[in-house]
């Protein structure tokens, strides 16, 4: 089996990288794929919290790199989705504990048994970002429809291109259709026009995301959430399915109502 390494990055902090990683991880696993999420934000780990796996950490990424445990021992299996596991970041170290070569080595090993390796990149464009970028086959650039986030995303895409990595695909997170309608928020076309890369998903603003994140229950598990459905659609697009984009004007079309019913296969 040859897995795909997808790095989730943004440049700017707080746009929803960890939320996206957690939700795509669960969504891909629910589609029957073997998935591992790697938190590469050494020193500021939080993917474990978002996934609700915080109190099961024994070993972390740095332990694997420094040979204190085997790779398998650091992989925490998610009880809700047995196909999903997490390799947490070390909290007591910093970015210099990991090198791009370490990341490539670990991902090469994981590729043999996994379908997807999702790397949650830290904010910024320094060492941590380079570590996350090094093994990537695909870069998912997460941005919000606001000028500062879009500019940082543009910088990240420029760096991805100059490292000849990619392709880079765009996820627009926290789009508020009411604000867009009033002309108070950039719309998806504005963002895509500037960044000029393929759009793979638009996630609407949804307060259920915040609630679920605090509970460690990613929103994709909540069948009532529009954001959850949007993440599920991105996961299906990553798997090569053609999924039309959701209507974001508040009205649900027939298609999304049906997929909403069917998406966990009646689970």
């Amino acid at each position: 089996m040859t897995g795909i390494v997808a790095t989730i990055s943004s440049g700017k902090g707080g746009v929803g990288k960890s939320t996206t990683t957690a939700n795509l991880g669960i969504a891909l696993a629910s589609l029957g794929k073997k998935v591992v999420c790697i938190d590469s934000d050494i020193g500021l780990r939080n993917l474990d919290v978002v996934l609700g796996l915080e109190n099961r950490i024994v070993y972390d990424l740095v332990d694997v790199i420094e040979g204190r445990c085997r790779l398998q021992q650091a992989m925490i299996r998610d009880k809700r989705q047995p196909e999903l596991s997490l390799i947490p970041a070390a909290q007591t170290r910093d970015k210099s504990a990991v090198s791009p070569a370490d990341m490539i080595r670990i991902c090469d090993q994981l590729k043999e048994e996994m379908d997807w390796i999702l790397i949650d990149s830290p904010a910024g464009i320094e060492r941590g970002f380079r570590n996350a970028l090094a093994p990537a086959d695909l870069i998912l650039v997460v941005t919000n429809p606001e000028v500062s986030a879009v500019r940082d995303a543009d910088r990240v895409i420029g760096l991805v291109e100059s490292e000849q990595k990619g392709p880079a695909k765009l996820i627009i997170n926290r789009l508020n259709s009411a604000l867009v309608k009033r002309g108070d928020m950039l719309n998806a076309e504005d963002v895509q026009d500037l960044l000029a890369i393929e759009l793979i998903g638009i996630v609407p603003e949804d307060e259920l995301v915040l609630i679920s994140t605090n509970r460690g229950q990613p929103v994709v598990l909540d069948q009532k959430s529009d954001a959850g459905l949007a993440f599920m659609n991105i996961a299906r697009r990553l798997n090569g399915e053609e999924v039309p984009f959701m209507r974001l004007d508040g009205k649900k079309d027939l298609f999304s109502s049906i997929t909403n019913l069917l998406r966990f296969g009646g689970k």
Binding site: V147, R151, D152, D154, R155, I157, G158, L159, E161, L194, A196
Partner: peptide, 23 residues
Amino acid sequence: TLRSGISIQSEDSIIVLGDVNPG
């Protein structure tokens, strides 16, 4: 296209066939 963070300096004229993005 020149993305954010790129700086092009030349003593001569510069011609860009593409966009010059903010930043």
